[in-house]
């Protein structure tokens, strides 16, 4: 009875349109699954047995990507209850941690996986360096990786402004004061004032949308954190994975 039902479903047009081949337990289907699935085709069909060794990659790059997925997932949940308004944001975070069902867990996961991602990305960079995996023909992928590293740190930085607590305010105050001290384009930096930059037209003013960290800064960082930087990091990841596939895995021959 159940077997007949399963067979009916499997033979139906709907099932056939989604799964183009049988369960991947034969060589043919194990190849087809990699070709036909958009997510799985990031992988090659076959891989050298030695490249599976944990000792070589320690799964650092893959886990960084997994952290990004987890952060996107938990971040979307948090966005449902969060308003980027200086009067509301702090209360929203309190609501999320204490009132929303599983809200505290979502925020904790978001926070700790963000910290884990920073650590994993650094560790991944270290591993890639130590195994010489950046050498020709993989130079470009190392550069893309550095961009991803920078984007990861910027995501962390824009992220901890959002709860609008003391850490948020002062970390952003300090961080954007550094921008103010940029040579040439910040008014407190070398040659900034000589080039006509003032507190209300320099790079810091653009970054926080005002002369003090306030509502505009919160909104700008919110947009950067939730839209601009994730888009950049997604594009970077696409290129990063694509190049691994094209240039080949550097693992032991």
């Amino acid at each position: 009875m159940i077997d007949r039902l399963v067979k009916y479903v499997r033979d139906s047009q709907v099932w056939q349109s989604i799964f183009r081949h049988g369960y991947p337990d034969t060589d043919r289907n194990q190849s087809l699954v990699m070709f036909s699935s958009v997510l799985l085709h990031l992988h090659p069909v076959k891989i050298r047995r030695s490249a599976l060794k944990f000792r070589y990659t320690m799964c650092l790059g893959g886990l960084s990507a997994f952290m990004f997925l987890l952060l996107t997932f938990t971040g979307i949940f948090l966005m449902f209850y969060y308003v980027p308004d200086t009067r509301a944001a702090y209360g929203n975070i309190k609501d999320i941690t204490s009132n929303v069902f599983m809200g505290g867990l979502m925020r904790d996961l978001h926070k700790w996986s963000a910290e884990a991602m920073v650590f994993l990305v650094w560790a991944h960079m270290f591993r890639v360096f130590m195994t010489g995996a950046y050498k020709a023909p993989r130079e470009l992928n190392w550069v893309v990786g550095c961009i991803l590293l920078t984007a990861t740190l910027l995501l962390s930085w824009t992220g901890y402004l959002l709860p609008w607590d003391q850490l948020a305010l002062w970390a952003i105050t300090v961080g954007t004061k550094m921008a103010e001290a940029t040579p040439f384009i910040g008014y407190a930096g070398p040659w900034g004032q000589q080039l006509g930059f003032r507190v209300d037209n320099d790079i810091r003013f653009l970054l926080i949308g005002g002369t003090v960290v306030g509502q505009n800064a919160l909104l700008r960082f919110y947009v950067l954190h939730c839209v601009a930087l994730p888009v950049i990091i997604t594009l970077g990841m696409v290129v990063h994975f694509w190049r691994i596939r094209k240039d080949g895995f550097s693992g032991p021959l």
């Binding site: 990699m34 799985l40 076959k46």
Partner: peptide, 13 residues
């Protein structure tokens, strides 16, 4: 000495 990504690598991941 190669193996199929499904299931070997995917399970590791």
């Amino acid at each position: 000495d190669t193996v199929f990504v499904w299931p070997h690598l995917l399970y590791i991941e």
